[in-house]
Each structure stands twice: as C-alpha cells, then as structure tokens.
Design a protein around this nucleic acid. Structure first.
Lengths: 250, 250
DNA sequence: GTCCTGGAGAGGTCCGACCACTAGAATACA
DNA sequence: TGTATTCTAGTGGTCGGACCTCTCCAGGAC
C-alpha cells in the first residue's frame, strides 16, 4: 500500500524491497554503509536512516551499532514489540492473547500432522526428550518448550501463521516475565507435549489439534493462578463502527 | 524486550507508551509538535523523529504531513505492509496467505456466533443487504464485503485475532490489486455471506465456521483462475533449524 | 603466546536551515 | 452577502555536515 515515489522513506523501502525480490539481497546479507548507500541513492543519510528504521521496525532489517545493517535471517516475525505496543494502546487482555495462541497453535498442530516431515518429527522427539531431562530446571525446560512449538510451526508449512504465532507468544512471554518465574508440574507438561508429538507423528490432525488445545488451556489456567490479573471470561466489546469505510482500499 | 534507557529511540517509544498506559494519551489524540516535544524530552528533533517513525511503522502512531502526529484510533493493525515486506523476504506463497486467512476467519466466525451482540448482527445484516444491492458494481460490492468481515472480527471479541486478520487481508488485497479488478458471480458470493450471517445470528459456531471456510475456499479458487500464479498444493519446506535457541527470551 | 592499545569504519545523535503540505484566516470579487 | 481566491502560520519532511559511540581487529608491548 505504500506509494512509490515522493516520501523518501518509501523510496528507500521499495528500493530495498526490490533488491530483495531480485535476489540482490539475501537474508543475512549486509547492506552498504549508510553514507555510501545514501550517496548511491541520491538521498540524504537522514532519509536513508528513516527508511532503514522502518524496515528494522518491521523486523526485516537488523541494525548493529558499530558493525553494520543486515537483512534479517531468523525465523520470520512481525515487529517484535508491536503486539505489546498495540496491547497498551487498545487494552488487550491476557485471556485474549491466550485465546489467540490457543486457536493458532491448535491449527498449526493439525497442519503439522498433515504435512510434517521426518526431520520435523525427529526434532520434535528430541525436544520432548530434552524436556523430560530438564523437568527440574524451569529455565532450561522453557527453552525446549519454545523450540518444540517453533518446530511445529515450521512443520505446518505455513510461515505466515508461524510468524503470527511467534509474535503472539513473544508478547505473552513479555507479560509472563513480569510475574514470578517459577514453574511447576513440568512433568505433566512434558507428558502433554509427548502426546502432541505422538499425534503429529501418527498423522492424526484432529487428535493433534485437540491435545494442543488441552495443553494450552492447562497452561493458561496455571498462569492465571499465579497472576494478579486472572483470565477474564469472554465479553464482547462496544458497537461496530461504521466509519471504517473510507479506510477501505481496493 | 526493548531496553529502557540509552537508545533515544526506545526512550521515546517508552515515554509515549507510558503516556498511553497512564491515559495521558488516548486513541485519536495529537502529540505536541516535534520541535516542542523534542525540547520537552531534552532530545534532538531527529531522535524524536526516529522514535515516532518506529511507532508509526508499528501502526501505533499516525503521522500527517502539515497537520500533526496522532495516536492511531482505527481498528488495531500490525504494521500494514509488514506482511507484504516479510513476504518478499521469505517468499510467502499466495496459497499460504489464503490458508492463513481461511483458518483465522473461520475461527473468528465461530467466536462471533458465540459472543456476537445484537448490534453486530444488525451491522452484518445491513452489509449483506448492501451487497445484494451492489452485485453489479464490483468496486462498491468489495467495500461492503470488507466491512462484513471486519464486523465479524469485531464481534468475535478478540481484537488480537482481528488485528491479525486485518493484516493478512490487507496483504492479500495488495496482491489482488496487481491482477484484474473484475469480479463475477457476486450474487453467489452474497448468498454465501447471507448464510454466514444466518449461522452467526442463530448462534451456531460450527455452522458459521464451516460456511466461512466454504466461502473463502471458493474465493481462493476464483482468484486462482484469473491469477498468473495459481495456488500451489501444500508442500512443507526445509529442515527445522536448531540455532534458534539463543534467540529465546523468557 | 598473551594482553593491551590504537585506529578504522560502522551506526547514533545533534544542530540549524530550508522545503512541502494543510488548514484556516484574510482578502478579493461577484 | 456570499463565494472564491490568496496568503500565511504551523507542522511534518529533507538536507548536509559535524561530532559521538561502539565494534572489531591489527599491531605492538610484555
């Protein structure tokens, strides 16, 4: 939706975008130094920087002070803190984030059961094993927990849904960090993950979806218990707006 | 995950964020002029601008040349073009976007059936009527189509999922605009929307989900027919990465 | 070999001037 | 009087060029 010319910002964005589309720029690549690049694009360094800032905010570029600016190469993410920011603005509730995650990951698990490959199964199996091995170390356990879910997202074959999941869980952890770090019942959690793994491996989408939903519901309850803001029951909000019409494009 | 001090950008972001959280800044509000605001924060205008740029990229602020800078007040969205950008970077496929949309909107419809209120039903009904009235004007029809789906998202009571949907459909329209603008079979489409409306109004989540899925599948097929890049069959990608561990942040 | 220091090169911040757009006030005109 | 036009204050957008800070690593001191 960005208009091409004028607006230096978009000029930079589109330029880099096309460099990516033509393959001139690959994930992990470094772009030229700002001064040089700005000269090449016939724009000021300040304008170039606003463009880069935009890309960086979107998670497409990765700026490292004193080193250089790089094309992101990690797993796709929508701007990391964007959800957290939007949450502050629109007053997102904790239960809403959990619900979103539950829905997304359930479908992701089902898709993984349909499309997962042997490599994914192997990776899942390994993470489950690691989880059992670290039931006494919450910190370490969490790492494998996160990896497990990430592998499922990858196995789903839909990077878009995976990116959305990444964004939501990221915001969720942001919030969790504020409360206690302690965790309990890791053994039960590991059992559930093992069930999920088995359902996926046996290519049973319905089962995978259902177990994943059970797992996340349990996780939410556990979280609510030690949180100050208990998960609220669903309660729809105000009236539907009518004014949005003018914002419609195409 | 943004670190507090240093990095002027984050100083600005956090400052505005806290102004939002304390209610000093409400959606639609205008922030002070850059020169004045910069003086008040004891930073340069350039730094203030990078911070604002970040917020704007996230969709939290809305900058209008010659007018002022405002807190966003529309429906929550993750940065508009972010998906489109990420798509260029990670090579998102068209069918993946459709799939993501199908999954999301189906669940959204189910939730709307559970939680929707009378106001939402009325709004939906009105949009359906408008759709029937504009089956001969594709452009006009599309506006009501978009509004219809947006109301469902709102009725779901989960603004996070709604925001994600908004982001994905926005990217989808970006692509659609590249192809022909013509549309056919609007009558059939309107019929399907009417069915969805009825399922929601009668509080039948399963039915709502199912009809919505049918509708979006049909829409995808129609799109594929006149597109140069037909929707590809599902095909999972490469190996699961292992390196992601270091990126985990509790 | 190890440690320290210095410098090159990258991004980060700042300043101050000027450009471009918008909206509303002031003015001209019918 | 009413309407169109022009002017102008205020706001964001761009510029360039100076200077600061951070990283990394070569090269010397030990």
């Amino acid at each position: 939706m960005p208009k091409s010319d004028t607006h230096m910002t978009m000029r930079v964005v589109n330029h880099i975008r096309s460099m990516i589309e033509t393959g001139d720029l690959q994930p992990g690549d470094r772009i030229p130094p700002e001064r040089e690049f700005a000269r090449k694009l016939h724009i000021s360094r300040a304008s170039l920087r606003t463009g880069i800032g935009y890309l960086a905010a979107m998670g497409v570029m990765n700026v490292r002070h004193g080193v250089g600016t790089f094309v992101a190469n990690g797993p796709p993410e929508l701007g990391k803190s964007s959800l957290s920011l939007l949450g502050a603005l629109h007053g997102f509730q904790s239960w809403q984030m959990f619900e979103a995650r539950r829905i997304l990951e359930s479908e992701l698990a089902a898709l993984a059961a349909e499309r997962g490959r042997e490599q994914h199964f192997a990776a899942l199996s390994e993470e489950v094993a690691e989880m059992y091995a670290t039931v006494d170390d919450a910190m370490e356990y969490l790492i494998h927990d996160v990896r497990f879910h990430r592998v499922i997202a990858q196995a789903s074959g839909n990077p878009i849904l995976a990116a959305v999941m990444e964004t939501i869980t990221s915001a969720l952890y942001d919030e969790r960090r504020k409360t206690a770090e302690r965790s309990r019942d890791l053994k039960e959690s590991a059992d559930l993950h093992r069930e999920i793994y088995r359902a996926i491996r046996s290519r049973n989408p319905a089962e995978a979806r259902s177990v994943m939903e059970r797992h996340l519901t349990a996780a939410q309850s556990a979280q609510d218990l030690e949180s100050t803001t208990p998960g609220a029951p669903p309660a729809p909000e105000a009236v539907p707006t009518k004014r949005a019409a003018k914002k419609v494009e195409v």
